[in-house]
Design a protein around this nucleic acid. Structure first.
Lengths: 144, 144
DNA sequence: AATATTTCGGACAAATATATCCTTTATTAA
DNA sequence: TTAATAAAGGATATATTTGTCCGAAATATT
C-alpha cells in the first residue's frame, strides 16, 4: 500500500503531533524510538516533511520537530502521503497503463473505481487531530 | 498498489485467458507484445504462474501458455495477486506494524478496515471470465 | 566567545525489485 | 534421428528503495 518511508513518516508525524498537542517539541532520537523506526532514515523523512511545510524544525539544543497546533486539524493523511509517496496512489492505473481512464479503461478500471474513491475520501478527510485523539486515549499505538 | 511484476502478470494472464477462450495457445513473445511488457521479465512471471498452477505451459514448437477453460471462472484476481505479490496486500498493517489488529490497532487500522475488506471482496470475486468478457467486447484494453 | 546540541545535506552502502541474457531441457516436425 | 522451437532455470545487470554515516550549519546554554 504505502512505502516504508511513508509508513515511518505517518508514524513519526503522529508522534510529533501528539507531543505538539501537549506543547512539547521532540527530536529524531525520541521519535525513532517511540515509533520503532530506523533513526537516520526517519531523519531524512522528517526533512521531507519540513520542506513540505507539514512539520516545523528547530535546530540546536532543545530543538527538534513540532507541528503548529492550528494545523492539527487541517493536515490530513492525504497531505502526508502526497508529500512522501506522491500522488500515484490515487491517480495511477491498477494495471500500470499510462492512458487508463473511464473512456479507455484497463480491465480492472471499473472494479477499482469505488475502492480508490473510498480510499481517497478516507485519506483526505482524516486529520491528525482525529488520529491523535485515539492515541492519547491509548486506544491506538504507534509501535509493535 | 501492486508491484510491476503483478501488473504484468495480470495483463499477461488476461491475454492468455482471452486466447485460451478462443482455443489458442500463445507464447512469451506474443504475450509481451500484446501487453506492452518486457519480454524476459514477463517470462519469469509466467514461470511463477505455472508453478502456482494458474497457467499451463507446453514446451517446444507450437508450445506456449494456456489456461484450462474450466478454470476461467474459478481463477480470481486474488489468486493472481497472491501468487505474485503474496498476501501482504490484505493481511499487512497500513502503517507496517507487526501486531496490528482490532484488539491492538495502529492509528489507521479502523479507517482502513472497510476499504481493505472491499478490496479483498472485489479481488476474490472477480474472475478471469468476467474480465475477458469486457476485453473481447473491446470495452477494455491491455496496453497504452 | 566557546561548547554542546540538534537539524541539514550530501555521499555512500545494502537490500530489494526490475530486467536481461544465455544455457539447458522438452517437444514437435521434418 | 536431426533440427528447430519454445519454456525453464540460473547467472548477471540495472534501478529503486531503504538505510547509514559524517561534516556543515544553526542555535541555545554556559
Amino acid at each position: 500500500m504505502f512505502s516504508k518511508a511513508c509508513e515511518y513518516g505517518i508514524r513519526a508525524t503522529l508522534f510529533v503531533a501528539e507531543q505538539s498537542a501537549k506543547g512539547k517539541r521532540t527530536g529524531v532520537k525520541e521519535i525513532a524510538k517511540q515509533t520503532d523506526s530506523p533513526e537516520a532514515f526517519t531523519a531524512k523523512i522528517l526533512q521531507t516533511l519540513v520542506k513540505s511545510q507539514i512539520l516545523v524544525s528547530v535546530k540546536g539544543p532543545s530543538g527538534g520537530f513540532e507541528i503548529d497546533k492550528a494545523s492539527l486539524d487541517k493536515i490530513t493523511l492525504m497531505n502526508l502521503v502526497k508529500a512522501i509517496d506522491g500522488d500515484n496512489i490515487y491517480n495511477g492505473c491498477g494495471l500500470g497503463l499510462k492512458e487508463c481512464n473511464s473512456k479507455h479503461p484497463c480491465p480492472v478500471h471499473d472494479h477499482f473505481v469505488s475502492i480508490r474513491d473510498d480510499l481517497k475520501k478516507m485519506l483526505s478527510s482524516t486529520t491528525l487531530s482525529q488520529l491523535i485523539n485515539d492515541l492519547e486515549n491509548g486506544y491506538t499505538v504507534l509501535k509493535r
